[in-house]
Nucleic acid binder design. Structure first.
Lengths: 216, 216, 216, 216
DNA sequence: AATGAATGAGTTTTCATTCAT
DNA sequence: CATGAATGAAAACTCATTCAT
């Protein structure tokens, strides 16, 4: 199978997941999305579980690539950009679809070890990213010392929670967007108190405006 | 149908959801859990979707009632208890199973309006609860003034995110438990800076130990 | 059970049959039509088959009563009126419903001896009615001699066929109405050649206009 | 699906319909008749209704083809053969079962548009067949002029009515068979008076004996 | 006399998976 | 490589019937 063929299948899984939801997803749904027979899908992937595990793997690989390459800007900027990265609007359908698919896969983690181990890997990567930024900031004297692991966990959990709520609740509950409100709160309440005297944090708007290349 | 009979069915749905997960839940699973025939279930609820919607509704009603009777203890205590309420250990299998099932239902929100509207209601309730505590605290002079809505959203998102990660990742990634680490971080980084001079926050251990009646 | 109660049930069977058709008719359909529980229906009639057999019996009793009492008008008039009696328009919903119900029951005859014997009784009655008229007409010299049984069978089959086709095909195929066209053909081709010289047949319009009391 | 495979399914539907009747027909019945799983049936036809509609359509297509090849024998013979074609004995179980099933389907016409439209098509076809014969006969000078449409409707209704009564009443009421008696009556009373002087009608027995190839 | 609740047996339909071609 | 066809197992749902009250 060429890479292009595989991409096509993976795209189809994402589309089908988006349209039907995990619980109602059938091989037929996926097959229709990429103009293939279900038998062809089974030729490439032995079971539905295999196919979905591969899909999740691809999903997280993408995610990771986007996290990488933060460049060498000051830690405050990096942290602010990291937080801003989670913000999306109620009309950012691609993003919603992506994370909804991810959420549906995530909820299957406890039932499928292959899925769970990918999730653990991705969690470790996310927290390490934040931890690295924090560590660099403390080392540079830009941040006052903190419990790095604890803070990283806090940041990641908070942003994940905001995203999950925005995706599952839709735009009704927090019209400005759950992620936006929570990201701002994080900056005000967590990041600002962390800054050493004389260190300035770029405004949220600035960071959102000139989104660095890695913040898709 | 008497209330007792209905309770029995709802309990069975909960149990079955815990054992099988949302995506794999069958009417038969539920029927077995309450020693009934599937036909009997269909006698009371026309469709599986109806039954699950009723279950979710009942769940949130319970939730609501538990959140309601917070009593008249000082706001600091209430806030600390609220945060502590989310903490559970990696071995609290029942809670994990329950919230996993709930997470699976949540990921169906975008596909099922009945589910989504219940989720929105529950979100509103949670944030209102925190907002009320904050408001009371500010009014009493125990908390320094803050943006109440913003802070409530932050707290709820953070705790939800921690819970979701703990459930989906298992004990591997944060052995003490994601919820525990994040709850402590929240208290240290968010609640403490909020306290007016002279106001003391009960220690986390204290609150966890004598969990008030409303913190199941 | 009072007669009124039973009438109510029978009406409900007719209504339900009309709405759902025999193949899709359920006890629940009937129960809903008369605001009763299915258990109540089973209290009065042991089985669904019993209930339907009773329904058919009532149906045919009605039918018979309408056939009776032809009075003592001349045989030509009686025969013409008998034929005209079968004519109904594409908008005569009551009549269509009645005969549709009857047709659906009739198609079950071969599967249920109770039904079949009622149908045989009704057939005998219909043919005897025609035969009596023919016999009287021949005796009176109004009709030329014919094979009475054969002619009666022909008349009954023809009118039944026209009615069945009109009911099952709807108004599309023969806009004036199958029964109307065929009844007219019967009069032109069968009755007229039967008349002795000097005997006049009332026009079809006349008979249709002043429908005698027994031709509902 | 090859034509042969489809034929096999259609034959199975016919057989199952004969054995069980329309109201009691299940997919399982059909599946057993052709040594297939019900799932295989559903692979070819999405729903039971689709399958039955296809069956009815195929039935009428066959019918059409059989009616088509009437050859170029004289109109009198054609008309006589057409009428004779409807005759069957009280012991012709296969035909009884088949037409009973068809009658059950017909009584579903008012509830199922797909069925009804096929019935209308079949009605049109039958009447056109008779009308064509009559027209040819009149043109050839074998028949005296008549209202062609009216006469065709009369013939079709009569034969249909006789068949319906014979099927639903069984052999009790008209031991020689309703269709036989009525067909003879039709010939005596309708066809014979139609013949131009010098034109002879083949005897009923003759036609019944050497049934032409198109009279199944 | 009537009902709400329940059920067992069955119905259509779905779906991941297999396999000959 | 890919497909059309097929299947077994299970799914949701239906329905006539029963029974305690």
């Amino acid at each position: 199978m060429t890479d292009g063929d595989n991409d096509q299948i993976m795209t189809a899984v994402g589309q089908a997941l988006r349209s039907h939801g995990y619980a109602d997803l059938t091989m037929q749904d996926i097959a229709e999305e990429c103009d293939m027979s279900t038998a062809a899908l089974h030729y490439h992937y032995d079971t539905k579980a295999d196919l979905l595990a591969a899909f999740l793997e691809g999903l997280l690989d993408d995610y990771e690539q986007r996290l990488a390459g933060r460049g060498d800007r000051p830690p405050v900027e990096q942290l602010t950009a990291f937080i801003a990265w989670f913000v999306f609007g109620p009309d950012d359908e691609d993003r919603i679809a992506f994370h909804l698919a991810l959420l549906e896969m995530r909820s299957q983690g406890p039932h499928d070890e292959r899925i769970r181990s990918q999730l653990v890997r991705s969690d470790r990567l996310l927290r390490d990213t934040v931890a690295d930024i924090l560590e660099a900031g403390v080392a540079a004297g830009d941040f006052t010392p903190v419990d790095i692991e604890q803070t990283a966990a806090l940041v990641v959990a908070t942003l994940d929670g905001a995203r999950t709520r925005q995706i599952t609740l839709g735009g009704d509950s927090v019209p400005e967007g759950y992620t936006r409100v929570v990201a701002e709160a994080l900056l005000d309440r967590l990041v600002d108190p962390l800054l050493a005297p004389g260190v300035d944090r770029p405004s949220f708007e600035t960071v959102l405006a000139d989104a660095p290349e890695w913040a898709r």
